[in-house]
Amino acid sequence: MTRARGRRIPLTRGSSPMPTSARRAAQITFDFEGEGEEARHWLDTAYGTMLRLTGRMGTVQHHRADHRGIAFDHLKIDARFAFDSDPMPGLVVVDMIDGDLEYTRGGVTDRCRDGDTVLTSGWDMPFSGRSGDSYEVRATTFTAETITAAVEDVAPDYPWQHIAFTSYVPRSPAAGARWRATVDELVTWFPEVDSPVAHAEATRLLGHTLLRTFPNNVLGADDRLEDDRDLRDATPSTIRRAVDVIEARAHDDLSLAELARACRVSPRTLQYAFRRHLGCTPLAYLRRVRLDLARQSLRDGTAASVSDVAARFGFYNPGRFAADYRRVFHENPRQTLTRAID
């Protein structure tokens, strides 16, 4: 992949889903399968913009999973084509599964092949490019609201309108691998909106991963004076306030930014305090409290099922929940529930 030089991806508010991760999907039911003009029209409609695809349109297969704020798409096109697109109504990250693609936007061209990840488009940014003989991608789209929430979590006072990604490719091979592994997991287990805590946790995780994958001016805005102040305020009294908030609001969708505001410190101060005095992060502590509450629900019979209690306390991946539960309590959650029923 050709690495992009420093460029700004402008962001403006808007909402619309678009393109999902890096592992080839085993069995997928496509929402659309067709070719020619019918396929061109479908893609323009699905992505909310004029893609202006040129070239022979072979068979196009497309599937979308829209999770309100995050959307995953799986797209296969069996043809060589070019595109000269208007801006997308979302921030789009593409993971190449097969084939090769070339994207040009903001004066920068990235060439990607299977296994690569690239930030293809920001709001208000047109882009163009071309494909090889065929290609297959999974892609992830963020709405402005989702990006705003992620920025607020890591830098509450930073104006989200000024966020700029200074490269369109991951900051390192390891960062790209982490991104693809995270999306692989969430594509499979993304919780529904009727489980609000679990849905918010999954959305927040993906937003944070985006900011840590692609170089940007939010995470690069730290200075030494802020570090010194945060370390100075990372006291036991900060921990006590945070623990009180967690005890009262463990059932709620509680982000790091909200917890820090309730404690009247910055998110970084809260991170330092927990690391210094408890040896863990605030969200790891919150997760441990939620595990304990889940166990109580399984034991007292107020949980209808293991999956029900997992979703209620924000564990969007049932397999991960079961593994964490077993590690802490030395039995499977289903064993706890069975004892309660007996």
Rank of each mutant, 00 (worst) to 15 (best):
3 R>F: 10
4 A>T: 10
4 A>Y: 14
8 R>G: 00
9 I>W: 14
11 L>E: 10
12 T>V: 15
18 M>C: 13
18 M>F: 10
20 T>M: 03
22 A>V: 08
25 A>G: 04
28 I>E: 09
29 T>S: 08
31 D>I: 03
34 G>K: 02
35 E>N: 10
36 G>Y: 12
37 E>T: 15
37 E>P: 02
41 H>K: 14
43 L>E: 09
45 T>S: 15
45 T>D: 15
46 A>Q: 15
50 M>S: 12
50 M>E: 15
52 R>Q: 11
53 L>S: 11
54 T>N: 06
62 H>M: 03
64 R>S: 13
65 A>F: 00
66 D>V: 06
68 R>T: 05
69 G>I: 00
73 D>F: 06
76 K>Y: 04
77 I>F: 11
89 P>F: 14
93 V>F: 02
95 D>Q: 14
96 M>H: 09
97 I>W: 04
99 G>P: 01
100 D>H: 14
102 E>T: 13
103 Y>W: 07
106 G>A: 04
109 T>H: 07
110 D>A: 06
122 G>R: 01
123 W>S: 13
125 M>D: 13
127 F>Y: 11
128 S>C: 08
130 R>D: 05
133 D>N: 07
135 Y>E: 05
136 E>H: 11
137 V>Y: 14
138 R>L: 11
140 T>W: 00
140 T>H: 00
140 T>D: 01
141 T>V: 09
143 T>P: 06
146 T>P: 02
146 T>E: 13
146 T>I: 03
148 T>A: 15
155 A>G: 07
156 P>M: 14
159 P>V: 09
164 A>I: 00
164 A>T: 03
167 S>P: 05
170 P>N: 01
172 S>V: 08
172 S>N: 06
172 S>A: 12
176 G>V: 14
177 A>Q: 07
180 R>G: 07
181 A>I: 00
181 A>M: 03
183 V>G: 03
188 T>I: 14
189 W>H: 11
193 V>F: 11
198 A>D: 03
202 A>E: 05
205 L>W: 02
205 L>M: 10
205 L>N: 07
209 T>W: 02
209 T>K: 04
216 N>A: 14
216 N>T: 07
216 N>S: 04
218 V>M: 02
219 L>S: 02
221 A>F: 05
223 D>Y: 10
228 D>R: 06
232 R>C: 05
232 R>T: 12
233 D>P: 01
234 A>L: 05
234 A>N: 01
237 S>M: 06
239 I>E: 12
244 D>E: 09
245 V>C: 09
246 I>L: 14
264 R>H: 14
266 S>E: 15
268 R>L: 09
270 L>C: 02
271 Q>P: 00
272 Y>M: 04
274 F>E: 09
274 F>W: 14
274 F>D: 04
275 R>Q: 12
278 L>K: 13
279 G>D: 02
281 T>M: 15
288 R>I: 09
289 V>P: 05
290 R>F: 10
291 L>N: 08
291 L>D: 11
294 A>Y: 10
294 A>G: 03
296 Q>E: 09
296 Q>C: 01
300 D>M: 08
301 G>F: 09
302 T>I: 02
306 V>F: 10
307 S>C: 02
308 D>P: 00
309 V>P: 12
310 A>W: 04
311 A>S: 14
311 A>I: 03
315 F>N: 07
316 Y>N: 01
320 R>T: 09
323 A>N: 12
325 Y>A: 01
333 P>C: 00
333 P>V: 00
334 R>Y: 01
339 R>H: 12
